[in-house]
Amino acid sequence: MTGTTLGGRYEIGERLGAGGMAVVYRAMDLLLRRPVTVKVLRGEFTSDESVVRRFRREAQAAASLSHPNIVGVYDVGHEDDIHYIVMEYVRGRTLKEEINERGPLPAEEAVRIARQIAEALKHAHAHRIIHRDVKPHNVLLTAEGRVKVTDFGIAGAATGTTMTYAGALLGTVYYFSPEQAQGRYGDERSDLYALGVVLYEMLTGRVPFDGESPVSVALKHIRETVTPPREVNPRVPPAVERLVMKAMAKEVDRRYQTAEEMIRDLEAVQRRLSGWSAGGRPEPSFLGPGARDRTQVVGRTAPAGPADDATRPGDRPGARAAV
């Protein structure tokens, strides 16, 4: 693909990465003279008309989103059997790369990132767009501290499709909600469950459920009780743990019902963490009465969770879009 010009406008440059549905390239918009990211649908899906239709429909819907925490979709097109989405080029790295390199993030930083992801979801949900594939690989971090969520267009196209690229499916199932693991479509609350998983991983350095196959991981999301974050990393404040556990409730009615509701709790936690950190005092237990506080002992943290296709060797960790 490198050297190809799509639509007479987008000159394809270096390959930045690949996922289960698409290959991602840096490109140059020859008309506006600006760098862009081009996501090309994998060849094995181009013969499936239902996938192609969903790919285009979801991309067009995602293009309607305009928010500072969402990677913008500029264009969608096809040339012969090549179907592609043109997106904002973000110079940064994925949240998955950040976790893999650093391990557990400080609670204040993790909550700040989660709040920006929630703001992106709130905007998308208001436009009746569900992401359905919220994971650290689809979250970009800029050098300026901005969080950008990507892949709103392609996530919906993958729904209901048999994913032959096993690594990508395994990478996604770590963040499945129980209803998605049962084969149901999911709604806004599925996105919020996935955000709870992402926050869990930021705080502990590992995903809450692991397994040797996608099916085994999916069954754990349905049946098993998650290990509380503080049992993995005692530095996690009790209130942050409660927020994670509510987001990851197996019954949808016990979770956060809207992104706005989750944002309110994230804001409250963020304010309290910021205030106590500035004062040099230990983080308190808050957001709810009767919380059990445990001795703040720094223990051995768990190893980073398994990386999926988006972080396999060969992909550049620098400026790129998540896959």
Rank of each mutant, 00 (worst) to 15 (best):
V149I: 14
V111D: 00
L121V: 06
L95A: 10
A181C: 13
Q180M: 07
A120S: 13
A166D: 15
E101L: 14
L170A: 14
I154L: 10
I130R: 14
R128L: 06
Y165C: 00
A107L: 15
L169K: 09
P136C: 04
P178I: 06
G156F: 14
T150Y: 07
L105I: 02
T150K: 02
D187H: 12
T150Q: 07
I117K: 03
A158W: 06
I113W: 02
A120Y: 03
A143V: 04
L105W: 05
D187G: 07
G160I: 13
V139N: 03
F176C: 10
A114F: 09
Q116P: 06
V111C: 03
E109P: 03
G160C: 12
V173R: 09
Q180T: 03
R132S: 15
F176Y: 15
K96F: 09
E188D: 11
E144H: 02
Y174T: 14
H137Y: 08
H125A: 04
Y174A: 15
G186V: 00
G186Q: 01
R102N: 15
I129H: 11
I113H: 01
H131W: 12
K148T: 12
I117G: 02
I99M: 08
F152E: 01
R128C: 05
A107T: 15
Y165N: 02
L121G: 01
A155F: 13
R112W: 13
E144K: 00
I154P: 02
D187S: 05
L95R: 11
K135W: 06
H125E: 10
A143F: 05
L141K: 09
P136H: 07
V134N: 07
V149Y: 03
I117V: 12
T161H: 12
E188V: 01
V149T: 12
L140N: 10
V111F: 07
L105T: 01
L121S: 05
G145Y: 04
V173T: 12
E101N: 12
G160M: 14
T142P: 08
N138S: 06
G153L: 06
A143G: 11
A124C: 08
R112Y: 14
T94H: 10
A168P: 01
T164A: 12
R128E: 10
D133K: 08
T161E: 10
K96S: 09
I99N: 01
A158Y: 04
E179T: 08
Q182M: 08
I154M: 13
T161C: 07
R112T: 11
A118N: 04
M163G: 10
I130Y: 15
Q182C: 04
K148C: 14
N138L: 05
R115E: 06
E179H: 08
D133T: 10
Y175P: 01
L105Q: 02
N138D: 07
L95C: 11
T159P: 00
Q180V: 01
N100Y: 08
F176W: 12
P178K: 02
